[in-house]
Each structure stands twice: as C-alpha cells, then as structure tokens.
C-alpha cells in the first residue's frame, strides 16, 4: 500500500460564515500499479478529497500517509522531499500550463528543483514528451500551438518529470473531445503500468471509469457510499445512488431509450439531511433511513456499501 487515507474530513467556512463539510470521514487506500476511480455528481467532494490528499487543502481531521510519511497541508515552504512523488494533474490544460513560457522551460522546473542540471533535464523532458506521444520539438513551442488533447499530454509529461509514484488526476479528460478522451485515458493507463504508479482518477464520466479503473469509489455529499472492484460495482451495484448514476448514462446502442432521471438535487450543504444523506432522493427509502446514518460495511470480499437495504437483504 503506497497511499492510505484514514477518517479524513475537510470543512470549509463559506463567506456567509456557514461551515460546510465537504468531505466526511473518508477511508481510502491505494496500491502501486492500481487505478482507483472516484465518481459522483459535482459538489460531492471528489475534487476536494483529491486536493486534501495532495495537501493543497487542509484536513479538518484524519490522516493521509504516503509511503509512511504524513501529508501535511502545504505552507509557504517547498514541498517536503518525500512528498514530491505525489503529483496532481488538473482538469483544464488551458489554464494549468503557462501560456507565456516555452513547454521545455515548464517541464524542466521540477527536475531542476531536484538538483538536475539543465542539459540532462531537457534531455529527459524530450524523452517524456515522446513517451506521451508528442515530438521533442515541442520543447521549443508554446501552449497555444497545441490542441486540448496535446496540452493534456504535456501536463501529464510535466507530472511525470519528477518521477512520481502516485498521480491524482482530477477530471483529466473532461475538457477533451471523445477521441482525445480515449487517447489520454489509454495513455494514463499505460503509464500507470509502465512506471508502476498508483493513479486516482477523478471523473464524472462513469463509462470511462468503468473501462480504465481497477477499483471504484462512489461519493455522495462528501461520503463514500460504495467502494469496491470496478467490475463488481458496475455489474451489480448495491447502493441506490450507484444504481441511479449508472441508469442515468445514455447508451449509444441506437435503441432510443431515454436515460432514467434521478429526482431532486444534492441537498444544501448547510442543512445536511438526517440519517442517510441520500434518503431525500432515494426510491427505496425506509423509516430507518431518515433517523439513522448507515455505516460502510463489506457485503462481500470485493464490495463495501453504506445502505441499510443491503444489510437487510443480506440478513434475510
């Protein structure tokens, strides 16, 4: 296990003074060479969780350990040496790359910080660019000379330049075209295997997560409601929210069936519902759901769910 998150909570104080719990008691673990998908609607806390794991936003409670080092919130100082192998790729390569600096200069920054000399840093950057499917001549170009998919490849090359061991990719393909999406997802997957990286793939695109991840965690309102092997979760989802997410994906089968609507909105974070957070939108709600919060428990060796219905059906 290379990364372990225990009981992590993140709270924000909003401008109006209200305290919002964006991530609530999350446990996660990640192995080398493993791809973990993190899915959920916008506002469910998946990006905040990713940032908290990176130490970009401070945790209110809980711990994050990366290779037996605790990740502390970043201050003004530079990132502690052992944590440099934890890297982040952002959603929008248009804003995460600097438009006024050459690609090469942006790529070598990390390496030079680690004490490499410029010449070897450039050589290594050129290799990385070639590895992600661009030519070494890109070193001398600027961001605007590349398409969205190409920019995301550059962002990936930059993350790779400091020899990371875990990459957190926050919606890395959402801003890209369909064919670029497939190219970039495949690239990330190949690199994970090639460099034996752990990858946390945050996305609201469930079908991509279905295809490229080993395990999936489904988040709702700051909590993980179901986590387990991707194949098992997508073939036999147990939590009503996971089921609703899967039913909402339109399928390109030409049969003309409309996706199923999930009624209601994500609740106001200032007033979380009592009991199960999903109960106001749940088709299968029972009385217990409004008074008591279900806990995550394993229903089989590859699937963990927090829903009363799964426990009753199991006890029956």
């Amino acid at each position: 296990m290379i990364l372990e998150v225990k009981n992590l909570s993140v709270t924000y104080r909003r401008q109006d003074g209200a305290h919002i719990t964006a991530v609530n008691s999350v446990d996660l673990s990640l192995d080398r060479g493993e791809v973990l998908g993190l899915v959920g609607e916008s506002g469910c806390g998946k990006s905040t969780l990713g940032k908290a794991i990176m130490g970009i936003v401070p945790a209110a409670s809980g711990t994050i350990s990366f290779k037996d080092n605790f990740v502390e919130p970043l201050g003004r100082g530079s990132r502690p040496e052992p944590l440099r192998a934890l890297q982040l790729i952002f959603q929008d390569p248009y804003s995460s790359l600097n438009p006024r600096r050459k690609i090469g200069d942006q790529l070598i920054d990390g390496l030079i910080n680690q004490g490499e000399n410029e010449k070897s840093a450039r050589q290594y950057s050129a290799q990385l660019l070639e590895r992600v499917g661009l030519s070494a001549s890109a070193l001398e170009k600027y961001t605007h000379q590349f398409s969205g998919g190409q920019r995301q490849r550059i962002a990936i090359a930059r993350a790779l330049s400091v020899k990371p061991e875990v990459i957190i990719a926050d919606e890395p393909i959402s801003a890209l075209d369909a064919s670029a999406q497939a190219q970039v997802s495949n690239l990330l997957l190949e690199l994970t295997k090639e460099f034996n990286l752990g990858l946390i793939f945050i996305s609201h695109d469930l079908s991509v997560v279905r295809q490229i991840t080993d395990r999936t965690a489904v988040m709702y309102f700051g909590e993980i409601v179901e986590i387990g092997d991707t194949d098992v979760i997508w073939n036999s989802p147990v939590h009503p929210y996971t089921k609703a997410l899967i039913e909402a994906v339109p399928k390109p089968d030409g049969k003309g069936s409309l996706p199923v609507e999930l009624s209601g909105d994500v609740p106001d974070p200032r007033f979380p519902p009592t009991g199960c957070r999903f109960n106001p939108r749940c088709k299968f709600r029972i009385d217990k759901c409004t008074s008591e919060a279900p806990q995550l428990f394993s229903i089989n060796k590859s699937q963990t769910v927090s829903c009363f219905l799964s426990s009753t059906s199991k006890n029956d």
Partner: peptide, 23 residues
C-alpha cells in the same frame, strides 16, 4: 465506426479504449 469504437462501454466486459490516432 472509429468514434463508436472509441467509446467506453458502461456495461459488459472491460476493454482497451480504441482511440482514433492522429488529428
């Protein structure tokens, strides 16, 4: 055919996404 093949499938078995190469 290329774009249909590049689409991930939500159900069924896992497969490598077939991207259309080039631009």
């Amino acid at each position: 055919r290329g774009i249909l093949d590049s689409l991930p499938d939500i159900s069924g078995s896992k497969k490598k996404l077939k991207a259309i190469m080039g631009f």
